[in-house]
Amino acid sequence: MESLAIYAPRLVTTKEYLASGHRACSGCGEVLAVRLTCKALGRNVIIVNATGCMEIVSSQLPYTSWEVPWIHTLFENTAAVASGIEAGIKVLSRKGGYSQKTKVVAMAGDGGTMDIGLQALSGALERGHNFIYICYDNEAYMNTGIQRSSATPFGASTTTSPAGKISIGQTSWKKNMPAIAAAHDIPYVATACTSYPFDLMNKVKKAMKVEGPAYIHVLSVCPTGWRLPSDLTIKAGRLAVETGVFPLYEIEAGKYTLNFDFPQLRPVEDYLKLQGRFRHLSKEVVAQIQERVKAEYAKLKRKVIQGS
């Protein structure tokens, strides 16, 4: 559990910038992540939102859940549109037509970020636009019905990597997207998860203060795609962190910090057995995943100790 005073939730603003009446699945962790992010961002933002669950559930004609300026983009060009808006704000400010410090915030799913939108994202990070990019990673293309992406974990069954008599489901390891973002030498990279709401909101607030690109990768539990009872959304996210499957860390100007360190990681099985998408896994495959998680966690800790 996050070390927090028990009454800390009462300190969070009750103001919502993502209105109720959105059509996300019952128990959706991704919409919760967006809701909390928006609380941390506040009013003075322009949100650039790729196609995907979050766009669909929040903007069904004639309704919108958005209480802040919001634009829907394609998969390919989310970061490019954000770059354009940021550049536009700069020009307007220079010409004296605009005096506010409005933050441009791009949002996309893992498919939109790690597969289809990666080129535009890389360009925007490399050019150094002053914006935040948030990837809501639910580990597959969920809006269209659970197709595998490069974020889908090894061994997960999806509709395009189905488990069967021979197949174990996804046969590749999850792409390390925060490392790719960090390789652009940007000022701020962080991972977060809805099960740690204060950590998530603090990271968003930190990213707001950064001059230049900031990238936040939020593990967003999707009960529908992960085949999980809807009340276990928060618990599943917590287990992802406690097992070391999804460590929470920050990279500030190249320096690594682990936000929650566990001297003793929980066995990955605790996390896997909760979810229908891993139900078919044999002991051997679970052991293989355990090895990998240990090795990756050790790698991360070395970076933390070395400072970069």
Binding site: G21, T64, W66
Partner: peptide
């Protein structure tokens, strides 16, 4: 009754939409 260009002019008007009957 929809505005041309499918414009929505009221921020957060999804509040009118009832999701309570999903439960």
């Amino acid at each position: 009754e929809l505005l041309p260009g499918c414009v929505v002019i009221e921020a957060g008007n999804a509040k009118q939409y009832r999701t309570g009957d999903w439960k």
